[in-house]
Design a protein around this nucleic acid. Structure first.
Length: 436
RNA sequence: GUGAGUGUAGCUCAACUGGUUAGAGCACUGGACUGUGGCUCCAGGGGUUGAGGGUUCAAAUCCCUUCACUCACCCCA
């Protein structure tokens, strides 16, 4: 019986994986330039970590998490539901920030160094319906700056992302920017917005009716025609920012102007997770279909404290790997693995000799490919060509008895005799002159 | 979770209104060229037409069910 991968879980096969490695390599380079350290955290966490940090009523927490009860009390396990779970409830991480902050608090990093700049990369899990640029296991590269509340940190992260996009050769992205206010100013805005929606509220789409109760700002983000018309004249959050939020946001914009990073102000952009405040941003591409966000993030000044740490501001972003690779694939092709030497043998004795010679050559630092099954010389040559080998070493009975193998340069078609007892050295010499 | 579309060889696709043995290109294997790659020519292997059921003398084609994939809604990276 054939076993297939789970829906929304996909393999990254050779041919595609090279783009991933390329992006990861570039990401490590920028993070080094901006002095970020890597952190690796578990893929599985206690469920409450996510429900507390992302917000109980978030879509992710409400219906998209892979959550299960651990085996620690399997024997007495009752059907899931409030109060009936005996084992601990665990969840496959749907995003990275919560776990990073948990690790930050748990290991008391704030005691060692006031400021922490961390990055991570790895899989996240969300049980959504798969679509272009949306999988159930998907990969993110993310970064968090903990312990810095100043707007320079926000701007630095935005610049880091811009640099990364440039380094991987991506253009045509748009940066949208907004400020969500803070605990001081958002409630006032919320009130005002609700009173604006007041009588209009009943005409909104069903979705927005529900949103009004939980997170009224989401109504402004609705794509439904009725809603966008009704909310056309709605008050903007930007008019309600308190002095310090205003200052903060002003400096972010100023710094972006200073460094030539263009952005579009979008007072209607709302981030999906509850922990965001102040700066919120989203990089989008029109070429991705409806999942158009390549990277997004913002400030989350209350989260560390919420998770039991000292009051500590934070900013971060997450970037969707498959979306980025999708955009890259439209631009560039990738290089596959190719051996430096393809070992061609004829006859049973040569076969064994070639097998151990391949091993010696590999230990000498050459990438070597060799056939195991009995194939004609012609077909071995064909394979060598297909793989793009630079050199072919041919060994048969004649060569074994004379002690001289044939080394063929596949590009120039030149052939040289090489003594078989010191092939490593002879090949090394040939390769050197070849690369000149 | 809701809706729409698509499933035929490893890949890309054919097969008139149901009608002989489901084809082609590319790829693969071998040969022409007995131990030397790319080009050309020739030959060959490869399919439960996604799966299951039904209608019919006859189903890749029509109907039902199911699965997978894709796109959109939703949501988000």
């Amino acid at each position: 019986m054939k076993v297939a991968a789970i829906k929304g879980f996909s393999d990254i096969l050779p041919g595609e994986v090279e783009s991933w490695q390329f992006v990861e390599e570039k990401a490590r380079e920028v993070f080094a330039l901006y002095n970020f350290s890597e952190i690796r955290i578990p893929v599985l966490e206690k469920t409450e970590l996510f429900s507390r940090s992302l917000g109980e009523t978030t879509d992710i927490v409400e219906k998209e998490m892979y959550t299960f009860v651990d085996r620690d009390a399997m024997g007495t396990m009752l059907p899931p539901g409030p109060g009936t779970i005996r084992g601990s409830s665990l969840t496959l991480r749907p995003e990275g920030t919560a776990g990073v902050v948990r690790a930050y608090v748990e290991s008391e990093m704030y005691k060692i160094e006031a400021v922490r700049k961390l990055f991570y990369l790895g899989p996240m899990f969300r049980r959504e319906k798969p679509q272009k640029g949306r999988l159930r296991q998907f990969y993110q590269i993310g970064a968090e700056v903990l312990g810095r509340g100043d707007p320079f940190a926000d701007a630095e992260l935005l610049l880091l992302l811009r640099d990364l996009f440039e380094m991987v050769g991506l253009d045509g992205l748009t940066l949208e920017l907004n400020s969500l206010g803070c605990v001081a100013c958002r409630p006032r805005y919320r009130e005002d917005l609700l009173s604006f929606l007041g009588e209009r509220g009943k005409k909104l789409c069903g979705n927005c009716q529900r949103r009004m109760g939980r997170n009224p700002m989401r109504v402004l983000d609705c794509k439904e025609e009725v809603c966008s018309q009704l909310t056309g004249g709605a008050p903007s959050i930007l008019g309600f920012l308190c002095e310090s939020c205003e200052d903060h946001f002003g400096t972010v914009k100023q710094l972006l102007g200073e460094t030539g990073l263009e952005f579009k102000l979008n007072p209607r952009m709302v981030r999906g997770l509850d922990y965001y405040c102040r700066t919120a941003f989203e990089w989008t591409s029109p070429r991705l279909g409806s999942q158009n966000a390549v990277a997004a993030g913002g400030r989350y000044d209350g989260l560390v404290e919420e998770l039991g740490g000292p009051p500590t501001p934070g900013v971060g972003f997450a970037m969707g790997m498959e979306r980025l690779v999708l955009l890259l694939a439209m631009k560039e092709s990738k290089k596959a693995a190719r051996p430096a030497i393809y070992l061609v043998w004829v006859g049973a004795t040569a076969r064994v000799w070639a097998f151990s010679a391949a091993h010696r050559l590999r230990r000498a630092g050459f990438s070597v490919e060799i056939e195991g099954e009995a194939k004609s010389l012609k077909s071995q040559m064909r394979r060598a060509d297909k793989m793009g080998a630079q050199f072919v070493l041919i060994v048969g009975d004649e060569e074994l008895s004379s002690g001289k193998g044939i080394l063929r340069n596949m590009d120039s078609k030149e052939q040289f005799p090489v003594s078989l007892d010191r092939i490593e050295k002879e090949i090394a010499a040939r390769l050197e002159t070849n690369t000149d």
